[in-house]
C-alpha cells in the first residue's frame, strides 16, 4: 500500500457540499484524493446504463462518477447518511447510496462512514472509525477530523460572505434583474445539470443568487415559516433560502431533477405559498434539451423584467 493510498471521490451528490471536509480529512490521514472529472455526457451515459431505470437523475450521475474512478484509486469513498441531526433526515438516496454502489459494482473496493444522528450514530465517531480502518492512529485521526471540520467551516463561511457582498447592493440602485436559483447543491454545481442554467441566466445579464451559498442553520430555521412539517435537511435549506431572499430578488427559479419526490412536494408548496415574487419550476431530466431550457428561462426573465419596468415607471410617475 506504499504506492497506492489513493481515495477516489465522486464529484457528485454531497461532494458538492462536503468536499472541504472530505478532502482535508483524507489528506491529513496521509492519503491522496482523486476526484472524478466534472460531469460530462459520457459520465452520465455510464450512470444511466448502471442505474435502475427509475433512479433520479442525480443518482444516475453519481453512479457514472463512481464508475469513472475505477482503476484510478485504491478505494472509492461513498458515505451513508440518514440524518445529520436529531430532528431531521435526508433523502433516502443518501441512505441507500453505499449499498446501491456495492450491489451495482460488486468488484469495486469502497470505504464509507455512516451518519445517523437521530439514532445516535454521530459523524465524529464514524469518521474516526474510518480513519482507524485506513490505518491511522487515534491522535492523527482526531487531528485530521478537527482540521477537516475547520476547513469545511471556513469554506461555508466564505460562500455565505460572497453571497452577502453581492446582496449588499440594495434593490434601488441595482440595474440588473436579480433571480434566486433554488436547487440542491449537487444539481446547481453540476456541470451538466445546473451550471448551464446559471451561465445562461448570467448571459442574459441577470444577477444570480443561489440557494447553495446560504447560511445553512439560519436557512433551516427560516424554512418553518414556509413549511412547518418538512423534515428533509436539504429541502429545509432550499425553503429557507426562498424565505431569506424573497424580498430582495425579482424572481425565483426552482431547479428540480426528475423524478425527485421531496422536491416535487416542496415545489408545489412554494408555488402556493410564495405570492409576492414570481416562481418558476424547471424540471431537468437526462434527455434535457438545452434549447427548451433556454426558451423557458428567457420567457421567465422577460416576464419579470417587464414587471420590473412597469413598477419602475409607476414609481417615476407617482
Amino acid at each position: 500500500m506504499t504506492e497506492g493510498r489513493r481515495i477516489g471521490l465522486p464529484r457528485s451528490l454531497l461532494y458538492h457540499t462536503f468536499h472541504s471536509l472530505w478532502t482535508t480529512f483524507f489528506e491529513e490521514l496521509g492519503w491522496r484524493t482523486v476526484t472524478s472529472p466534472p460531469t460530462n455526457r459520457r459520465v452520465l451515459e455510464r450512470g444511466v446504463a448502471l442505474a435502475v431505470d427509475e433512479s433520479c437523475l442525480p443518482m444516475k450521475v453519481f453512479l457514472g462518477h463512481v464508475e469513472s474512478l475505477r482503476g484510478h484509486c485504491d478505494a472509492v469513498f461513498v458515505p451513508r447518511i440518514e440524518s445529520l441531526n436529531e430532528t431531521e433526515h435526508v433523502c433516502a438516496k443518501f441512505m441507500g447510496a453505499y449499498d446501491i454502489v456495492r450491489n451495482t459494482m460488486p468488484d469495486l473496493p469502497l470505504v464509507t462512514y455512516d451518519v445517523d444522528a437521530a439514532n445516535g450514530v454521530q459523524e465524529r465517531a464514524s469518521m474516526l472509525a474510518l480513519a482507524r480502518e485506513l490505518g491511522a492512529g487515534p491522535l492523527v485521526a482526531r487531528r485530521a477530523y478537527a482540521r477537516a471540520k475547520a476547513a469545511q467551516r471556513a469554506h461555508d463561511l466564505e460562500m455565505v460572505r460572497l453571497q452577502e457582498s453581492l446582496l449588499d447592493v440594495g434593490s434601488a440602485e441595482r440595474d440588473h434583474t436579480r433571480i434566486l436559483v433554488v436547487g440542491h447543491s449537487y444539481n446547481l454545481a453540476d456541470e451538466l445539470i445546473g451550471k448551464p442554467i446559471l451561465e445562461f441566466l448570467r448571459s442574459l445579464d441577470v444577477e444570480v443568487v443561489t440557494s447553495a451559498e446560504v447560511d445553512k442553520p439560519q436557512a433551516r430555521a427560516l424554512s418553518k415559516r414556509l413549511s412547518p412539517s418538512i423534515k428533509w435537511t436539504y429541502n429545509k435549506e432550499l425553503l429557507g433560502a426562498v424565505e431569506l431572499y424573497r424580498e430582495v430578488v425579482d424572481g425565483i427559479i426552482l431547479v428540480v431533477t426528475f423524478p425527485c419526490g421531496p422536491d416535487s412536494l416542496m415545489a408545489e408548496l412554494c408555488q402556493r405559498r410564495v405570492e409576492d415574487v414570481p416562481v418558476a419550476t424547471l424540471i431537468i431530466d437526462e434527455l434535457q434539451a438545452e434549447a427548451g431550457m433556454r426558451t423557458r428561462l428567457e420567457s421567465f426573465v422577460d416576464i419579470i423584467e417587464a414587471k420590473r419596468h412597469a413598477a419602475h415607471k409607476a414609481e417615476v410617475e407617482a
Binding site: V52, M59, K93, G96, D99, I100, T104, P259
Partner: peptide
C-alpha cells in the same frame, strides 16, 4: 409507485 426512492434502492439489490 413509480419513482419510489427507497424501493428503487431495493431494486438495485434485488436485480443482483
Amino acid at each position: 409507485p413509480f419513482g419510489c426512492m427507497p424501493e428503487v434502492s431495493a431494486m438495485s439489490v434485488l436485480q443482483r
